[in-house]
């Protein structure tokens, strides 16, 4: 069996939005400890990892199940959540559906078809990074929006103790500089200068679920995948994005 109650449906919607920006379908692995999901996007450029411990739920009860769903369909259903709705997720093993129930002014029930998405057994690789930056999501997303004006890729740099978001187009350039004492920065653990370039659209998608005051943990090296972690509604979201490398 699987049944979970989430006090704010709108918050859980952010988790589904974050995944659906990058993936078509996902397998939620549920057990008595909580829910987890790991998947790579179809081009294997990005990896999404979601961990929701049972403590994040108002009520939680589960045996071991793999629950595969189409994320576009799940996202459309979650878009129907009202501001104060509670969300109940329950597995109907007989009908092979995930019931998605909103409890607010009325009780509204959707039955979401399950797909045979096998659990991937993916692990987030344990990489050592020279630099770890804790930054408010709002200013970082703003820096990405600035970069978007000049090109479709962006360079993240650590240079002389500063974290820099830089983009260069054929004609124009943009640069946002975060110094350690800037109010956007929570902390910077800098080991060495580093520089990697990434597709901007992926980075935008990965940070879409974060509210502007949420804290992003950004792990950065040179010509290495960037790792971005943050928490939404008690869920931990981790993203890895492969860089563009000068050939």
């Amino acid at each position: 069996m699987f049944r979970a109650v989430i006090s704010e449906a709108k918050e859980f919607k952010k988790v589904i939005d974050a995944a659906s920006n990058l993936l078509d379908e996902i397998c939620f692995e549920v057990n008595e400890e909580g829910i987890k999901a790991r998947a790579m996007d179809p081009s294997h450029v990005a990896l999404v990892s979601i961990d929701i411990p049972k403590e994040a739920f108002e009520e939680y009860e589960a045996d071991v199940h793999d629950i595969g769903v189409d994320l576009e369909a799940f996202k459309k259903i979650m878009n129907r959540a009202k501001a104060k709705d509670k969300l109940i997720l329950e597995l109907d093993e007989e009908k092979n559906k995930l019931n998605v129930i909103f409890k607010g002014a009325a009780t509204r029930k959707f039955a979401l078809a399950l797909y045979d998405v096998s659990s991937s057994n993916l692990q987030v690789p344990d990489i050592e990074y020279p630099n770890e930056i804790l930054i408010k999501a709002g200013p970082f997303v703003d820096a990405l929006k600035d970069a978007d004006l000049v090109n479709d890729h962006v360079t993240l740099k650590v240079e002389d103790g500063k974290f820099i978001v830089y983009a260069k187009g054929d004609l124009n350039e943009s640069e946002t500089i975060f110094e350690e004492d800037s109010e956007s920065i929570i902390s910077m653990n800098i080991g060495e200068n580093a520089k990697s370039t990434f597709n901007l659209e992926y980075l935008r998608d990965m940070t879409k679920a974060a509210s502007s005051s949420d804290i992003l943990k950004i792990y950065l090296g040179t010509d290495m995948p960037v790792k971005i972690e943050y928490d939404v509604a008690g869920a931990n979201l981790t993203f890895l994005l492969a860089p563009r490398i000068e050939s």
Binding site: M40, S43, H44, V45, A46, L47, S120, N121, L122, Q123, P125, N151, H153, K168, T197, N199, M224, P225, L240, A242, P243, R244, I245, E246, S247
Partner: peptide, 14 residues
């Protein structure tokens, strides 16, 4: 700028 590489180029993730 450069070439988009995949995560498979870095890790054996599976």
């Amino acid at each position: 700028f450069g070439k988009q590489v995949t995560l498979d180029d870095f890790f054996k993730i599976n």
